[in-house]
Design a protein around this nucleic acid. Structure first.
Lengths: 245, 245
DNA sequence: AGTAATTTGTGCGTATGTATA
DNA sequence: GTATACATACGCACAAATTAC
C-alpha cells in the first residue's frame, strides 16, 4: 500500500485535527472508505498528515462521537455500516421497509400465550383492564441479522387464530389479513431509548449493555378500532428511525 | 405507616409476580405512587402480598425493565419521573412543547462560531461543501432541568445576525424571525440513540455513560429552502419522542 | 498453549499561540 | 503591557486487547 503525504494548512486558524477529520469524513462520504472498511492505523495516519498521533486521535474521536467510525482496541478502526433507515409513518410495514432496502425480511415467533391485559396495554388497546389478550414475542431480521425484538398484544377472542397464521407467514401484515383485517394504520408512536437488558441483548445478538431504541405503537383497522399494540426494541446501531419526509 | 395485606389469587393461572407487578403499575398509573416517591422496601412488599421476597423482586424487575421504577442498591426503589413527551411533527417548536407541559422553556447559547461546512451539514443544508456556516452550541432546559443540547447550523451570510438574536431571546423561533424568517417547517427527522459522551453528559447534567436520543432534523422556510440543520441530543430518561397524533 | 507483534487506550510533561481579564 | 486561562500540538511511555505465529 502506498500512502500519500497530505499537507495541512498550519497556522491558518483551522486546527489540524479538524482538517484531518474533514478529510476522513469526505473519504467516507464519497465511499472511498466503504462501510466495514478498516481505516489506516493511527500511526499511519499520523505519518500521512505529518502530525502527532494525539492529533489523529482527536480527529478520530470526533468521527467516532458521531458514529461514523468505531475503534476497537487491538484490532483497528472501522467505518460503521450505515444503519437501516426505518421510516415511521401511518402505514409502516416492516417487510416493505426491509425489502425496499434490498434485504430479506423475516419475523420469528419466539413464544405466544394468553394474558390478562395489564394497565398499560389495556389503555393502548382501549379494552378493560384484565381483558384477555394474545401476547407474542418476536424477533425481526434483515438478511438474518436481528434488527428488533417485539412484544405484540392483540385482543381476544377476535385474534385467536393470529399466532399460527404469523408462524406460517412470518409477517404481521399477512397474519392480520388472515384474521379478517385487510388493512391497518399506525395510530400513535412513542420512541424511547435505554440500555438493552440481558434477554433483549441475547435475542438481538448484542453484547449486553448496548443501547436500544424502544418504539411503542398502536395499530388500528379501517374503522379506527385498535387491533394491535406493539413494543419493538431495536438495536440502536443497526437502525435509524426516520420520521415524515 | 399502615400497610394493608393484599390477597392474591393463587393457582388461578396468573403468576403471583405478575399480579404484584400489575398492582404496583396501577398505583403508579393512578398517581398513588407519585414520580420520585420511594416504594416500600422489598421486604415490606413481600409481607403485604404474603409472598417471598424473590417473588416481589421478579415483579419489580419487570417494572424496572420498562423504566417505571429504578432500584438503587442500598437506598431503595423509586418511581421514575414521567418523561416529557416531545412530539415531532412538521411544526415542532421546543418552546411550545415545554410551555404546553406547564413548564418554563429556555435555551442557553454556549458557543457560536463560523465554520466551513463539513460534508454531512453541507448535504443537509444543500450548500457546497466548505461553504461558510454559523454553528451554535445550545442547551435547552425546562424549569432549569436540561433536556437537550443541540448543535445548529445556519448558512452564512444569510443568518449573520442570528447568534446575538438567539442570545437575547433564548428561542430559535424568535431569532429566525429577527433574520427575516417568520415561519419554518421541519423537512426531515432522523432519530438515533447511543451513549452520552463526557461533554454531553456534563452539559445535560448526566452521569457519564447514560443513554441519549439523537434527533437530526432540517428546517425549511416558506419557499422550501433549508434555513437550519440541527442535531439535538436528549437525555433519554427525561424525554419521550412522540410521532404523529 | 504460549509468546510476540500489532493496534488502540491512557497518562504525563512540555511548548506555543490566542483570546480574555 | 501583564497575567491568566484555554485550546492546540508534540513526545514519550506504558497498559489493554487482539491477532499472528
Amino acid at each position: 500500500m502506498h500512502e500519500s503525504i497530505d499537507a495541512l494548512s498550519r497556522g491558518g486558524g483551522l486546527a489540524a485535527w479538524r482538517q484531518i477529520a474533514d478529510a476522513l469524513e469526505g473519504e467516507i462520504a464519497t465511499g472511498d472508505l466503504a462501510p466495514g472498511a478498516q481505516l489506516p492505523t493511527e500511526a499511519a495516519l499520523a505519518a500521512r498528515f505529518s502530525v502527532n498521533r494525539h492529533t489523529v486521535r482527536r480527529a478520530l474521536a470526533t468521527l467516532a462521537e458521531r458514529g461514523l467510525i468505531r475503534a476497537s482496541q487491538g484490532r483497528g478502526t472501522f467505518v460503521e455500516a450505515a444503519p437501516l433507515a426505518y421510516p415511521i409513518g401511518r402505514r409502516t410495514r416492516f417487510s416493505e421497509i426491509v425489502t425496499g432496502a434490498g434485504r430479506e425480511p423475516w419475523g420469528d415467533l419466539i413464544t405466544h400465550r394468553e394474558i390478562a391485559a395489564p394497565p398499560e396495554c389495556a389503555a393502548m388497546l382501549a379494552v378493560p383492564e384484565g381483558a384477555p389478550l394474545l401476547e407474542l414475542l418476536t424477533v425481526h431480521r434483515a438478511d438474518g441479522v436481528p434488527l428488533s425484538t417485539a412484544r405484540t398484544w392483540l385482543p381476544l377472542p377476535r385474534f385467536a387464530g393470529f399466532a399460527p397464521a404469523y408462524e406460517r407467514s412470518g409477517s404481521i401484515t399477512r397474519a392480520l389479513a388472515a384474521c379478517g383485517v385487510p388493512d391497518y394504520t399506525r395510530a400513535s408512536t412513542r420512541i424511547r431509548a435505554r440500555l438493552a437488558d440481558p434477554a433483549e441483548a441475547a435475542r438481538l445478538d448484542l453484547t449486553p449493555g448496548r443501547v436500544v431504541i424502544v418504539v411503542s405503537s398502536v395499530n388500528v383497522d379501517g374503522e379506527g378500532v385498535p387491533v394491535q399494540a406493539n413494543r419493538a426494541v431495536f438495536a440502536a446501531d443497526r437502525v435509524e428511525v426516520v420520521v415524515g419526509t
